[in-house]
Computed example of a mutant assay.
Amino acid sequence: MSDQDTERLPSEPSPAKGDVRTAYKTDIVVIGAGQAGLSTAYNLSKLGLQPGRNFVILDKSPEAGGAWQYRWPSLTLSTVNRIHDLPGMQFADVVEEGATEVRASVAVPKYFAAYERKFDLPVYRPVTVKVVCDRGARLRVETDRETFSARGIVNATGTWETPVIPTYPGAERFEGRQLHTRDYRNAEEFAGQHVVIVGGGISALQLLDEISRVASTTWVTRREPQFRDGPFTQEDGRAGVAIVEDRVRRGLVPGSVVSVTGIPWTPALKAARERGVLNRLPMFSEITEHGVRWPNGTEQRADVILWNTGFRSSLDHLAPLQIREEGGGITMSGRLATQVSRDPRIHLVGYGPSASTIGANRAGGAAARELAAYLGLA
């Protein structure tokens, strides 16, 4: 039985109905309503495209806020790296300036929800995209609710759903707890325990600082962390983004911007150094029943291993489109490297050089303009 297309779009997601053959037709499907997805939707609207007709926005989360709504409670506006304004509306318009102790998991969703209302961006949620398939002139987007038929897609699913935990011998034998950054809630749950903290990024260092106040800690990283003494300038950021952009334009797996720019010495990190917390050790070689062991036989007993080992882009639903290169990367093109070279109907925002809040804003605008032009919509 062939698929049926309809121009009528649902006013809200309907309950899952099993094998539904009707596909709602639209020009563009935006997958994800975080910073990158909302920026894309805003720019599509500014081009004259009508939300609900020319494009739809699908979001897996039950409420506005993207991945921010799942961040740990101790991540406040005073400790978060930075929150950049979405285009057309300032964060300070919604969250009172100076409210530094407000949780980021509360403030940012409040801002995103207000943004969706102000610019009349109806987001269908909760809707999980299961798979995207090529259907010749169109792309079939199958979800756990409706099915959509689109001429192009902008994928803005970020990374929060796909945490990375590397494989180490003995991991299955460990009798303590193994957690990832996304599982972290607060330091108090580790009080009086010994926690091995793995990772050299900003999140790892923040959690190391917090946990070390109530528990004993061991900090390990694969590479020697690179700290920077001077302030982090816009030129530094652009230089880091340029390196990552070069990688994705060559079809390589993108590295993180912080691995290029280094970690700034914040007052909190300087205080942690004074407390003797930043005593970094190289990675252990195996995990034992009661802790970890290094190649020279040294062991450390531990109650918890906290993996701050990052995330990978949540792109599994795009696998049937075969956009990856043999080495696992995706060759990107376009002004800000958002367009998939193998299929210009597909744009990835929040991927590679745009995997930051300010990068996602710029990428959303570029993707909207380039895809609309490619499809003859603007």
Rank of each mutant, 00 (worst) to 15 (best):
V123Q: 07
S11W: 04
K60L: 15
G328W: 07
P267C: 10
W294P: 03
P62Q: 04
T338V: 14
R228N: 04
R345S: 09
R138V: 11
P13W: 09
M332Q: 04
H194Q: 13
T298Q: 13
V196N: 04
G352M: 13
Q300A: 14
R362M: 15
D93P: 03
P13E: 09
V95P: 06
T162A: 12
G192R: 01
T233D: 14
D5K: 03
V108E: 09
G48C: 02
L278R: 02
I330N: 04
E326A: 15
G291I: 05
T221C: 13
G376A: 11
V349K: 00
A368L: 10
V349F: 09
R228F: 02
G98Y: 09
S333Q: 11
P122Y: 08
S39Q: 05
P282K: 04
E210V: 01
D303M: 01
V141P: 01
P73F: 10
G365L: 06
V154G: 04
V106K: 09
I28R: 09
D343R: 03
D229C: 03
A67Q: 05
E370L: 13
M1E: 06
G48P: 01
A191W: 05
I153M: 13
D134L: 06
G364K: 01
V349W: 10
R335T: 11
A366I: 11
L306D: 11
R53N: 02
E161K: 00
V20A: 13
P267M: 14
N361L: 07
G176A: 02
R335V: 12
R21G: 04
R247V: 06
L315M: 14
H84L: 06
K17W: 11
D134S: 15
L208C: 10
R238Y: 14
K270G: 07
A372K: 00
Y70I: 02
E146W: 06
L278Q: 06
R228G: 03
Y168L: 13
T261K: 01
G365Q: 13
E63C: 02
G350E: 11
D5T: 10
P15C: 10
A355K: 00
K25I: 01
G327W: 05
R71V: 15
S14K: 00
Q4P: 00
H317R: 00
W160T: 03
G158W: 14
M283V: 01
K110P: 00
V260C: 02
R293K: 13
Y111F: 14
E96W: 09
A367T: 05
E286G: 03
H194V: 14
I323Y: 11
T233L: 14
A113Q: 12
G291N: 05
A23D: 06
L315N: 11
P73A: 11
G297M: 03
G328R: 04
Y42M: 10
V195Q: 07
A239Y: 11
R238N: 13
S314H: 08
